[in-house]
């Protein structure tokens, strides 16, 4: 005798509910109660959840039907989605695999100087460059050079693609208030969704062996700041200067390339800095879905309770984070400086 029997009777819905309530499959709660050997305890006033209502009326679905429905719906849509998304995203797999291969195949005595040189040209700061060289040396010393390079190559590819897609999206947003209004909620969603939640639909859609799986997860997460700050940066450009550009007859292309983008550059660079940091955060989590790199060692530390392995990898991640942050911040402040060379 379930609590809501009388309700359905009073509403005259008994017929619609169908014959025997007990003929419905057991709900999860019943099953648990049974297996733990306790009798189902009747609550005084149970919440009118689907499972509770189902006990009184088999015409009402159970909660597991909902999850099952979603799953089936998703599976039904999967072939179409896959047919569209697979070819579009395939280059991402190639890029990631290519980058991983390149970073692995280049001998360290060539790779390290290249990285140090990049740090120098981006930051033009002796301190930062020495710090980068020292950090890579440390990582190599504890035999984490290879995994660190894997992480780094994934970040390079994902940040690059985020910038290539994010800057044009940000430009388009700054030009159209309507586009901005419709994209801002999407960006909010991408940024607030817990990172694990991204992975669920992606795992269904792509096989775990494909690199684009984690590539997409990282890009979706990391693209947000560069889009936002490109939009903001362009909108914040001094209207007087824009007016001057118009008054002297610039085309919108000349205005964009010669005025708006250069003046928005500090903001865009700040966005890129955040994008890099978020790629790094995500690439660690993405080791759950077979992304190689330092994250794998962290995961091993957790799974096998190998404290040392986990901590060393963790420190490696911190080092990478500091390197990437320092270099991109130094580049940013250099851009800011050229603005007002006092």
């Amino acid at each position: 005798m379930a609590f809501y029997d009388s309700v359905f009777k009073a509403l005259g819905l008994s017929d619609w509910c169908g014959a025997e309530a007990s003929s419905a499959p057991m709900s999860m709660a019943d099953l648990l109660a049974q297996s733990s050997g306790e009798a189902t305890k009747e609550e005084f006033f149970p919440f009118p959840s689907l499972d509770n209502l189902n006990e009184s009326c088999s015409g009402i679905i159970q909660s597991r039907d909902v999850t099952k429905g979603i799953e089936e719906g998703f599976l039904a849509a999967k072939p179409t989605l896959k047919a569209i998304l697979d070819p579009i995203t395939q280059p991402l797999s190639w890029l990631l695999d290519g980058a991983l291969w390149t970073f692995a195949a280049t001998p360290w005595f060539i790779m390290v100087p290249i990285l140090v040189a990049i740090a120098w040209f981006a930051s033009r700061s002796v301190g930062v460059t020495i710090f980068v060289a020292f950090s890579i040396f440390l990582l190599g010393l504890v035999d984490h050079y290879d995994v660190a390079m894997q992480t780094l190559s994934i970040i390079f590819v994902c940040t690059g693609i985020s910038v290539m897609l994010g800057v044009p999206i940000g430009i388009a947003m700054s030009k159209s208030d309507r586009l901005q209004r419709s994209l801002v909620p999407v960006l909010d969603l991408l940024q607030t969704l817990p990172t694990f939640v991204y992975l669920i639909p992606l795992i269904f859609l792509f096989s775990v062996t494909e690199s684009k799986l984690y590539g997409i997860a990282i890009i979706l997460y990391a693209i947000v700041p560069v889009v936002r700050l490109t939009d903001l940066g362009i909108r914040l450009v001094d209207q007087d200067v824009i007016e001057a550009a118009d008054a002297f007859g610039m085309t919108s292309r000349q205005k964009l390339l010669g005025v708006q983008l250069p003046l928005a550059l500090p903001n865009i660079m700040a966005g890129i800095n955040q994008t890099i940091m978020m790629s790094l955060a995500m690439v660690v989590i993405a080791s759950l879905v077979s992304a190689p790199g330092l994250g794998v060692n962290v995961l091993r530390g957790i799974r096998n309770l190998e404290l040392g392995v986990g901590i060393v990898a963790g420190i490696g991640i911190v080092l990478l984070a500091v390197i990437l942050d320092r270099v991109s911040k130094a580049a940013l402040s250099r851009v800011d400086m050229t603005r007002v060379k006092h």
Partner: peptide
């Protein structure tokens, strides 16, 4: 009035 020069 506010000059509106290109700062960069």
């Amino acid at each position: 009035q506010k000059f509106a020069l290109l700062p960069h």
